[in-house]
């Protein structure tokens, strides 16, 4: 215990504070993930449109999402919006906006990929059977696309959860920040706390992300045959 500095974890309300920090991170991820999934689906369908204007818009959006580091986006929304537009966005809301912006873009691309992976002859065969466009999507395309989509989108979800560690830079006190606070407050008394606390945080992230990726693997296996 002493060697790893784990004793620090049980001082005062330190353990509870870490869990509260995890709660903040999980809360922000869940909200962003839900928004990303819903809007990402719509954006993905939009991306498959042949309309040149739609293509340019989705291209630019996707490139911004891919090129801009999340930290820069966080600073733009949190500080930039206030500076340029006089809009005051709270740190939590900024995080949700940025994570959703990122999630919708990536999710949209995944949806587009899954939709386009359905061979053209299936659309044509369904149409030949007299199905309407809606019916084709509902009965033929979506069931197959979703199977290809779920493992990849769950991967995105775990990435988003892990990336919440950046939001401490705009003042959100989440699990990483609480960890740093605990380590620094005990720098003199237990210098080894750095191992114990970061180790605990590692375990917490793992406990949140691992079941999610197990679910992905399970679904992948189940649907592969």
């Amino acid at each position: 215990m002493e060697l790893l500095g784990l004793d620090v974890l049980f001082k005062g309300s330190n353990a509870m504070r870490l869990l509260q920090g995890l709660g903040v991170a999980v809360e922000i991820s869940i909200i962003s993930v839900v928004i990303s999934l819903v809007l990402g689906m719509l954006f993905g369908i939009f991306m498959t449109w042949k309309n040149p204007v739609a293509r340019v818009i989705s291209r630019i959006y996707l490139e911004i999402v891919r090129i801009m580091p999340q930290l820069v986006l966080l600073f733009i929304v949190f500080f930039g919006a206030t500076r340029a537009l006089g809009l005051n966005v709270s740190a939590e809301l900024s995080s949700i906006i940025v994570f959703s912006f990122w999630g919708v873009g990536e999710m949209g691309d995944l949806v587009r990929g899954s939709l386009e992976s359905i061979p053209v002859h299936q659309y044509e065969s369904a149409a030949a059977l007299g199905m309407t466009k809606g019916q084709i999507y509902y009965h033929v395309v979506i069931p197959q696309a979703v199977r290809r989509l779920i493992p990849m989108s769950i991967n995105l979800v775990t990435r988003m959860i892990k990336t919440t560690s950046l939001i401490l830079m705009i003042g959100v006190v989440e699990v990483m920040k609480v960890g740093q606070q605990i380590i620094e407050a005990n720098r003199m008394v237990s210098p080894n706390a750095v191992f114990g606390i970061y180790g605990t945080i590692l375990l917490l992230y793992f406990l949140v992300c691992w079941p999610i990726s197990m679910l992905a693997r399970h679904l992948e296996k189940k649907w592969s045959n």
């Binding site: 869990l19 509260q20 995890l22 709660g23 991170a25 917490l204 949140v208």
Partner: peptide, 10 residues
């Protein structure tokens, strides 16, 4: 873990 985290967060 989610429940604990959420509870603590709230």
């Amino acid at each position: 873990v989610l429940a604990l985290g959420l509870l603590a967060g709230c």
